[in-house]
Design a protein around this nucleic acid. Structure first.
Lengths: 214, 214, 214, 214
DNA sequence: GATGAATGAGAGTTCATTCAT
DNA sequence: AATGAATGAACTCTCATTCAT
């Protein structure tokens, strides 16, 4: 039932192909950057990976720095989306619910970082060494995570299922460090999902119970 | 009573000067690398900072990568030395003693990282983006810290002042993450020593007590 | 009374539209070239100015060099036409008639060059720096003007109203130089028509009377 | 009587070599630019002509535009020097002296332009098509020449050996056009010095006597 | 041993031109 | 016929490294 292609369809198709290529370039750039590193990757490497001329790259991205921004933006968006999806400090009213919430967040992050160790490599190792602006963006992610965590803490302290003397901000930072430990674990043993799970569990347990015997 | 310099003395003196210059180059390279970044720093920048010809650089170091190794080695040595100085898992026999020990280690690290934010910048941001070998060396530091922590945990669990069901390795990794949080705090608010202290305190408290109300 | 378009009419109409577009491209190219310069103008700039795709350009002109030829040809044609319109060495039989003739030629050139300073800019500054062939064509215009002037001189010398010892060729060249001075004045003070008129007048007076007191 | 080279001599020698190379680069650039044109000349062409690496070029000049400035500056300096050497409006008190002065100036310019047709090619054809700033510098030379000529005219008009109704400025511009005609002649018939001399003579005669029979 | 002039590999980027749609 | 996505030659410029002085 497809009639002859109308102008609108044609434009849509061209637009779609264009968009697809853009995304392929972002993906290829991510792969190259996370493997060889930003500085050791040439535009030609990215283009060659896709089998396109390297001039084509510049039809879609302003310059090398520009594609890096898009790569990082995509990763940050995925992470923020995952955090936002699980974000509901107000919906958590008991310690058990919060534990469960933390597990979900932990699981959502694992979904991203354990599934592809290159994500952590890209964000933690590469993106933090290009320039101040990009470093700021990545470290800003930690600030966001800290703020999110602090919101939960505040809520829990008010409702009384967290320590009354909890230093909300400082502890939130420490907990983001625990998350960082998980990312590092993913970098160190990319294939060992079990080790990653155990580190995540130990981190959660540390959060809630500390290490001391009761 | 100083006679004419003997050949031996001259060689010794030359040797000493040579050694001093080497160290000055390492220091200058550290300063440049941590400020401008490794890739944006030229050999000429390092040489100019010292007022030496940039050809002279190559009399003391094989190439640009080589000096980076020496810079990083120096930083790692300082940290390992600090950790080693406080390292005595066997000498800690009670929870209070371990808390105290952790405070000392935390203080020793602050001594290094808070005193000079460029150390964290160099190790965490720059050194992890050059090549696999160097990244490995830096991440290896975390492994070392993890192993050290795990030794304490093992000891504490055996002596009973730590939880009997403590996942020694996983928790050790999580705690190293807490340390990382302190380094990040130093990066984010280099001038705010108070914020750094509070983050460190919150981290210690998290370790021992967790966040839950008892 | 317009019936359905016949094939012949259609072809004719299409041909006319095609011709119009060609001319619009030449005009747009002239505007870009004379403003930004040949090398700093891209085919895309010309196309964009017309709101056509830059691929369309190549349906009408072989390449970038080709359009430049057409731009210059158009300008040269306008100038030659103006010169030819006033060209009548044989019709001038007295000094006064020749003075009048020179004024007319001067006026005709002003009509072209003062009306649009970009013409001189294009011909004198841009077109002479592309390649030998084009430079030759532009400089050839001066030869033509020289030959034309020389014809007048020859005629006037024969009829006796010009100096008997006049070096026809050399003086013709010098006089073309005076014309050039007018073009330069148009370049230097594009808005100051009065200055241009005065320079032209002074040039004519120089031609006929020289500078010395009698 | 040459002793052992002192440090001073060594530095002087290095400095001299450096200066020599700089000048060789300027010369080579002039040759390439005036032959192939600025845009068709690559830095590599200049370097190759000298048998040096193209990186060496950048040790001596900031970029391609920079060397062009130096080439043009050198040419302008030569011309201005020649003009300045003959510049003495006040020292000329009779028509004959002024004729003689004009001959000297004409000769001095011939010395430069006829000796090397590339000078005119470089200044008139190349340098006027790069950017506004450089065009301005070259056209400014004509302004200078005009001002100089006007000064002579003013002086001559005051002393009475030039026409009392002489339009000093306009005529000065026209006369600079006559000079331009000489440069063009040098471009058109670079080898025919006789033709150049005749054009120059005819120009001088035009200046003083005009073309009309008396 | 110190120097800095010389080098050239290699990078990012532009844009005239082609050609499938 | 019109389009603009794709192409890659070609260019300018940087900088780690070498080596004659």
């Amino acid at each position: 039932m497809t009639g002859p292609p109308t102008t609108t369809q044609a434009r849509t198709r061209a637009e779609r192909l264009r968009q697809e290529l853009r995304e392929e370039i972002v993906t290829a750039a991510f792969e190259e950057f996370s493997q060889r590193g930003y500085h050791d990757t040439g535009i030609a490497d990215i283009a060659q990976r896709l089998g396109i001329g390297h001039g084509t790259f510049y039809r879609h991205f302003k310059n090398k720095r520009d594609i890096l921004d898009h790569v990082v933006d995509g990763l940050l968006a995925r992470i923020l989306e995952a955090l936002a999806a699980e974000n509901a400090p107000d919906a958590v009213d008991t310690l058990d619910e919060y534990v469960e919430q933390c597990r979900r967040i932990s699981g959502a992050l694992s979904e991203i970082f354990s599934a592809d160790p290159r994500v952590a490599r890209m964000l933690l190792l590469e993106a933090t060494s290009i320039d101040a602006e990009l470093t700021e963006r990545v470290l800003g992610l930690f600030d966001t995570a800290t703020a999110l965590t602090a919101a939960y803490f505040m809520h829990g302290r008010e409702l009384g299922y967290l320590r009354a003397d909890l230093d909300v901000d400082g502890t939130a930072r420490a907990v983001v460090g625990v998350i960082l430990a998980n990312l590092l674990q993913g970098l160190r043993t990319p294939a060992d999902r079990e080790a990653q799970r155990r580190t995540a569990d130990a981190g959660l347990r540390l959060m809630f119970d500390g290490i001391a015997r009761r």
